[in-house]
Structure formats: structure tokens, C-alpha cells
Write a protein that binds this DNA or RNA. Structure first.
Lengths: 208, 208
DNA sequence: CGTTATTTTAAACGCTTGTTTAAACTGCTT
DNA sequence: AAGCAGTTTAAACAAGCGTTTAAAATAACG
């Protein structure tokens, strides 16, 4: 295993757990069992390391998401459930790519939106616009009556639901275990959230 | 204005803007125009200051929320829209209590859930359980068919939607201005999110 | 083998962090 | 006016941060 990958793996786990600001390079390099200076040698800076961690996932995920969403658009009368279900397989495929991959990635996404004053939001929307475009097309096909402005709000609400849920998914799984004696996985959380967001996006227009 | 309140006000704004980890005591005390040591003198530590900032809001908000939710429970056949609408007035009343009060409080809530590994979640659920209990009762009355386990998930999803939306509400309002030429307030965001979360919580049970 | 390149290493850099100290200052009571 | 509790202040503290440096170790190649 190369130094670069040891750093990426350690950084990913720590970032997901404690956030970008909350994780120091010394924690990362000591968990990766490499020298402190290796981060700056291989990645240049901490910020570039964060981007590299995210890119590793996005490069794996974004083509699969685009395919899945395009397939939904190609079907006859897709429901919103169909649209959101298109995310399941691509997301779960991250687990084959790496242990805890799905969970880590979604938690990182949540971190990126709240830590670091939105620089990661800029990074994702500018570097991977295809995913968002395809997603909007699919939602439009499933719910054509939804106006652009309503769509804007509801997609942001959905992003919030998913990102927040996943960034605290470990805690939720723990509570589900102690309160309901249920042994759940990240895939169960995903399957639970889909009816919720589909209903939210598909809500009737408000009266006022 | 007392030193204590000057610190609380400055801390609140900075915490909402840059998170708890991302704000230093030196930033707080220089914006408050007080001595650096004043924080430790009056509050003991940074962690206690965070609690004090949150408590100032929660002590104002929680009795009003409990009253509003109890009133909803007392009505004949409340809808989920009624339940969530009960939050509007208490939340907006924070604006009379302090400039930008509503927005700041909701952003702080979002920070507390993602920063600092959930110590604020513990703080809120143990210190203000009455709000949560009343809320669950109201939802149960509006949607009795919803099982305890489904309820658990959907309330967490709702928390995520609200908390995430509000922690990025400034950005959303900016985008709404540039994309749709709309001048929105935090109250508009709240009114937009209610149909969404009401539909999400009220979603039919999933088939699988 | 010898000579470049590449990578790893220990040490130090300058800076910021939260917290503590002890002296100075304030307003109040006797 | 003296004394005292409460408060504010400047200065320093130890610890942690991201980054840089230059030397040592390793790898690659003619």
C-alpha cells in the first residue's frame, strides 16, 4: 500500500468521524503510520488532501449516478420513488470499492456542507455538474407540475435531509439498536429515507 | 450592556457564521470589545460559553413551543401541517427577543448537531425533553397509524431537513435572489419547508 | 557500480489556540 | 477615607496547528 493511499484512507475515516476542521494532520499521519511531512509532500496542503479524499469517491460515483438517472429518465412514467431509488445501487457500490465506503462518503458529504464555509459545495457543483443536471431532469419528468422555484427549494431540503441523516447515521443506528433492538446497516437508513424525501418533493403546492 | 451579554452576543453571531470549532475566543472577545480573559472569568471555559449561548435561546423558546404544541394536541383533528405550523410563531418570536434571532438560533442548532461530536445533541435532549415529548404526542395525534419505529426515523429526517436548511439559509436566500429575483426572509424559508416535512412525515408506509 | 530521482525522515519554523496568573482598577459599604 | 468584593486588564503559559527545511534513505536507470 502506497504512502499516498495510506494517507487517503486514514484521512477519510478521521474526516468522516471528526470533521475537516476537527482532524489534524498529526492524527492522520500517525494513524496512517507515515511521516507528518508526507501529506504536504504528496498533496501540497491539507485543503488539497480534502479535495483528493472527495475526488476519489466522486470519480467512482458520478458516472454510475449519471447512468442510473439517465435510465430513469428513459422509462415511461417514472415516479419520484423511482428517481430516488436510482441512488441506491451506486451509493451501495461504494462499499465494494472500500470498507464502509457508503457511510464514509455520505458523512464526508455532510461535513463538507457545514464545515469550511461551503468551499466543498463549490468544489462539487463545479467539478461534477452532470450529476445535478441529470437529477433535475429526472425529477422534472417524474413531477412536471413542479415549478422551478419550488423545485429549487425542495431539492435543497432533500440534500439537507440526506446529508444530515448520513452525517449522523452512526448515532441513529446506535439509537435504533438500543430503542428497538434492531441491527441496521447504512443501506437500511437509505431505504428508510427514500419514501420520506419522495413524499417531500412530491408534496402538493402550498396554498399561500 | 454587561460584559457577559456582550460576549454572548458576539459569540452567538460568530458561532452561527463559522461554527463552534471555527471560532476562536480571541475573535469573540475582540468583536465584543472585551478582554480575552473575560470569557474564562464569566463562563469558565469555551464549552460552557457554547452552552450558555444555546440556553439563552432555549429558555426563551421551549415554553412557547410546549404551549403551541399542547394547543395543537387539544384541537379536534390536527393535520401534520398544523403540527409543524405550530413552530412558526415561537421561532419567529426569537426575532423580537434579538435581531436575527430566529436565523441565528436555527443555524446554531445546525452547528451543534455536526460540530463537536454531538455533545450539544446530548445537552438539548437531556435539558429540554419536554419539547420533544410534546412534539411526538402532536405527531401521533395527527398521524396515529405511524408506528414508533417509522416515527423515530421520520422525526430525525425532519430534524435534518430543518437544521441543514437553516444552517445554510443565508446561502439559499442569496441564490433565491440571484436565480429568481426574490427577496426572501428567514420566515419565507420556514414557510417553504413546512409542506415538505409535513409530506415527508405523512408519507405512506413503504412496501418492503 | 555509480549517479541521478524520488521518497522518507527528524527537526524546526512561525503562528494560533484555550487557559491561567497576578496586578490594576472599579464601585460599594462601613 | 479605608477596606473589600467584584471585575477588568496585560502578559505569559503550554500545547497544538499547518507548513517548510535540509539531510538521510531508498529506488530507478544508464
Amino acid at each position: 500500500m502506497s504512502t499516498k493511499n495510506k494517507i487517503l484512507d486514514a484521512a477519510e475515516n478521521l474526516f468522516a468521524d471528526k470533521g475537516f476542521n476537527g482532524t489534524s494532520l498529526r492524527e492522520i499521519t500517525s494513524q496512517a503510520e507515515v511521516n507528518l511531512a508526507a501529506v504536504n509532500y504528496h498533496f501540497g496542503s491539507k485543503k488539497e488532501l480534502i479535495k483528493a479524499v472527495m475526488s476519489r469517491y466522486m470519480n467512482e460515483l458520478s458516472p454510475r449516478l449519471e447512468v442510473a438517472l439517465t435510465q430513469v429518465c428513459a422509462t415511461d412514467a417514472p415516479s419520484l420513488i423511482d428517481v430516488f431509488s436510482a441512488f441506491i445501487d451506486p451509493l451501495l457500490s461504494l462499499n465494494e470499492f472500500k470498507d464502509n465506503g457508503t457511510s464514509n462518503f455520505l458523512q464526508l458529504l455532510g461535513r463538507g456542507y457545514t464545515d469550511s464555509q461551503g468551499f466543498l459545495r463549490w468544489f462539487l457543483t463545479t467539478q461534477y455538474p452532470g450529476v445535478i443536471d441529470n437529477f433535475i431532469l429526472a425529477v422534472q419528468k417524474a413531477y412536471p407540475e413542479l415549478g422551478a422555484e419550488e423545485m429549487f427549494w425542495r431539492l435543497h431540503f432533500t440534500m439537507g435531509t440526506v446529508v444530515f441523516t448520513m452525517s449522523s447515521s452512526d448515532a441513529l443506528i446506535d439509537i435504533a439498536k438500543s430503542d428497538f433492538d434492531r441491527d441496521l446497516q447504512i443501506s437500511d437508513v437509505i431505504r428508510n429515507v427514500i419514501p420520506y424525501v419522495a413524499a417531500g418533493v412530491g408534496a402538493p403546492m402550498p396554498k399561500f
